[in-house]
Write a protein that binds this DNA or RNA. Structure first.
Lengths: 147, 147
DNA sequence: GCTTGACCTGGAGTGAACTCCAGATAATAA
DNA sequence: TTATTATCTGGAGTTCACTCCAGGTCAAGC
């Protein structure tokens, strides 16, 4: 498979594919006699994994270390496990940050939709009406900068 | 509150605090007669929000646009709502990417822990034993590059 | 008043992850 | 064979989000 076909299949540039290889994020891709890249089944697997890692926000360098360890053979299995667990922790923390921000966003969007409907944007809770607001206990969020 | 105190409270550098202000990510902070930053309740609220957005991975520019709209008054409420909903979508997509990667990682870690215990790293499913593997239906993931 | 340390601004520098480019080589169509 | 198109490499350029620096002001203690 040519680099063009791979770039089209995954929707990334040829430059990015070459960059991933240069940076060690994927192992060296097979070549034709003339020195042109010819992606095989396995190369595609690495590319797909690289994309998955990157789109989850994991760093190129971590993947490069992992690939390097893989190429060094079975002796590096414990190191690889440690690396995988580190990345896992990173992702779980990131997921939590996103969850926190989403909660703020959801609250704010609720208020803004209300504002667009009623023409009034307010951060005050209705004086006596309880219920309806699953978001936060009253008196916690009140202003613009709270998003 | 001085910039030093704020930087200590939130664990970020003074330079970053100034940068957030310069980039419009937070509105201009109040100053003393001599021109020195004096963070009030409201300034702290903006800082906290900025940190929340950044740690969730949202771009500085999006926050700067939001702040700009806020400063322009109520006429921008529909624009702000649109912006908030865009960021929400971004975060939800990012969360999904993380979830996908976490699933791959968990599978791999399971295999690697097995390998460390038994001394053998394998991607083959045990021939006839069903059960135990909630991860993927058999024959789906098999190799190193699958992480 | 003078020294010392915190803070100011504008601008340059850094690291990560691409992205673009020039000049050369390879493959393909006429 | 020749023209055209695709791919190669090494290296420079770009964007984002800081981070550092120089040279200057401000404030507190002596």
């Amino acid at each position: 498979m040519t680099i063009k076909e791979v770039s089209e299949r995954y929707g990334i540039s040829q430059d990015t594919l070459r960059y991933y290889e240069r940076s060690g994020m994927i192992p060296a891709v097979g070549r034709t006699a003339g020195g042109i890249r010819d992606y095989g089944e396995e190369d595609l697997g690495w590319v797909e994994l690289a994309l998955c890692m990157r789109s989850a926000g994991l760093p190129v360098e971590a993947m490069a270390r992992y690939v390097e360890l893989c190429l060094q053979g079975d002796a590096t299995i414990p190191d690889r496990l440690r690396l995988l667990m580190d990345q896992r922790r990173t992702l779980i923390e990131q997921e939590e940050q996103i969850r926190v921000m989403l909660k703020r966003l959801d609250y704010k969007i609720f208020r803004y939709e209300e504002a667009v409907r009623t023409g009034k944007l307010t951060w005050e809770e209705p004086e006596k009406e309880d219920g309806l607001m699953e978001f936060e206990s009253k008196q916690e969020r009140k202003r613009e900068y709270d998003l």
